[in-house]
């Protein structure tokens, strides 16, 4: 990436109206700084008319105006950026940052980290269980690292990932991460008592959904806090253990079966 940095341009447009790009966002920021359209126009090198048109385009993008004030006065009057306007600036800048990252990855030699690339673009995964958690503890070994996360008020999750992943993903205490668990990795035990088993992740819940196939059964466990875990077990197991709707069960899975992702 040494020769010629690639620059990606972000433009937002609503239903064919004029495009709002970085220039207009900069103008909006200038209004925030100077408190008037005429001064903001001067600051970014636009005529008052051009600035006024540009800000109209910005206002058209949002359900409510981005700036308020005596915009029509001869001197331009005073103008303020509304909360919606500030939010637009913030999200534009954030999107721009992400776009920049993606652009740099695309500009790489082609052996770039495609996983990160897809994730930045809002990757979807096939894993049925994706939990947004906050990291509460990290224990690091030579090869592996154990990451403990808060899943809900009562439950936590443990993941074992490589120490290299830990540093690559810059996982630190307090950071938000996504914990992914394939439903086929999840085992179930009937009742609310935690089985004495080496699996670190054991979460009690209530069966809220069951779908039987010829061989497999897919069960959803409501684990409180609006969260649920999906497990796919054999239909034989589901029947033997009488895992019926409304009954209590423990979902458990190995910490090495938890994948962590960050955005």
């Amino acid at each position: 990436m040494s020769q010629g940095k690639v620059e990606a341009m972000l433009g937002l447009r609503r239903e064919g109206r004029p495009m709002v790009g970085r220039d207009r966002i900069e103008l909006l920021e200038a209004v925030g700084i100077h408190g008037s359209i005429s001064k903001a126009a001067k600051a970014v090198g636009l005529s008052y008319k051009a600035a006024w048109d540009a800000l109209n385009a910005v206002n058209n993008l949002l359900p409510r105006p981005a700036i308020l004030g005596q915009t029509g006065g001869r001197q331009g009057g005073g103008a303020i950026v509304t909360d919606d306007g500030l939010a637009l600036i913030a999200s534009f800048r954030m999107m721009e940052k992400r776009l920049e990252k993606v652009a740099q990855m695309l500009a790489g030699d082609g052996s770039g980290d495609s996983f990160s690339l897809l994730w930045s673009l809002g990757m979807k995964t096939s894993a049925r269980n994706a939990f947004r958690c906050t990291v509460t503890d990290i224990r690091k070994g030579e090869v592996n690292a154990e990451v403990v996360m808060r899943l809900s008020a009562e439950s936590s999750l443990t993941a074992i990932i490589t120490a290299e992943s830990l540093s690559d993903l810059d996982i630190t205490i307090g950071r938000e991460v996504m914990a992914l668990v394939k439903s086929s990795f999840v085992m179930l035990a009937p009742g609310a008592e935690l089985p004495r088993i080496s699996a670190r992740n054991r979460i009690v819940g209530t069966i809220s959904h069951r779908e039987d196939g010829a061989v497999s059964a897919e069960l959803t466990l409501d684990i409180g806090d609006g969260k649920s875990i999906v497990a796919v077990v054999t239909r034989d197991s589901a029947e033997e253990m009488e895992l019926t709707l409304g009954s209590k069960a423990v979902a458990f899975f190995k910490s090495s079966h938890v994948i962590l992702a960050v955005d």
Partner: peptide, 23 residues
């Protein structure tokens, strides 16, 4: 202990080698 896993092989622990995180 009733669990959904189909395979439970009964045996005796003959060795434990502990690492820092994993054994």
């Amino acid at each position: 202990m009733k669990i959904s896993a189909r395979n439970a092989l009964k045996g005796k622990v003959v060795d434990i080698a502990k690492g820092q995180i994993v054994a």
